[in-house]
């Protein structure tokens, strides 16, 4: 079959080879070939010239598996809004702040990001009032043994908006703590992640 003929003959988008999402595969143990340690600091392009109202924070934690063993070969990524709760405009300034980071877990199973604390985030592009989400960071974990990456969210303990956050509210109360980062010191937020077993993180189907 020649490419393109199927879709041009049928205006309706029938599922075809070309219109089904590709399968995920594990990142494996050697993904560090695309590890760039500076990516763990989302503020690296800004030095001290941070956006107005920005608070530089660290977000760190350890990652453990179902046996309680440290996971020392994982890639952790973060994605979050800026201090005003905005995400970058795809047609906007590519040098504006972006809350994207990547970090390898070390020999202690630990990841650590330097970033800016995100503001409350709208649910959709024009949300107001109750459609606001509490400040949060999307986390993605890739590793050997993970055939698809695992996703979750980190929230900040003590945020007033947490009580009304639509995602937190959907999490059974007994497990909500697995999403709530605590401050070890002011501005130093920690959240340990557990792939499986006791205290398993609430992983999300995104």
């Amino acid at each position: 079959m020649t490419e393109g003929t199927a879709s041009s003959a049928t205006p309706e988008l029938a599922p075809s080879e070309a219109t089904i999402a590709s399968a995920h595969q594990t990142a494996g143990p050697y993904w560090h070939l695309v590890d760039f340690p500076e990516w763990a600091d989302t503020t690296r392009h800004f030095a001290d010239a941070l956006p107005d109202g920005a608070e530089r924070i660290t977000v760190s934690g350890t990652l453990r598996d179902g046996n309680g063993d440290l996971v020392t070969d994982a890639m952790v990524e973060i994605w979050h809004a800026d201090p005003a709760g905005r995400y970058p405009d795809q047609n906007g300034d590519p040098t504006a702040f972006q809350g994207y980071g990547r970090c390898a877990t070390d020999k202690g199973g630990r990841f650590r990001f330097v970033t800016l604390k995100p503001g409350p985030v709208p649910v959709g592009p024009h949300s107001q009032g109750n459609a606001m989400q509490a400040p949060h960071i999307a986390l993605a974990v890739f590793a050997r043994g993970l055939l698809q990456h695992l996703s979750t969210r980190l929230y900040f303990e003590g945020e007033a908006l947490n009580a009304a956050d639509p995602v937190l509210k959907a999490v059974p109360e007994a497990r909500r703590g697995t999403l709530l980062a605590k401050p070890a010191r002011p501005g130093e937020w920690t959240l340990d992640l557990r792939l499986q077993g006791e205290g398993e993180t609430v992983w999300m189907a995104v």
């Binding site: 995400y87 043994g145 969210r153 995602v167 497990r175 499986q196 992983w203 189907a205």
Partner: peptide, 16 residues
């Protein structure tokens, strides 16, 4: 030892 045993929470898609 790396797959979650709890069912995944279906996350509605937001701006994030």
């Amino acid at each position: 030892a790396r797959h979650p045993q709890q069912p995944l929470l279906e996350l509605p898609h937001t701006l994030t």
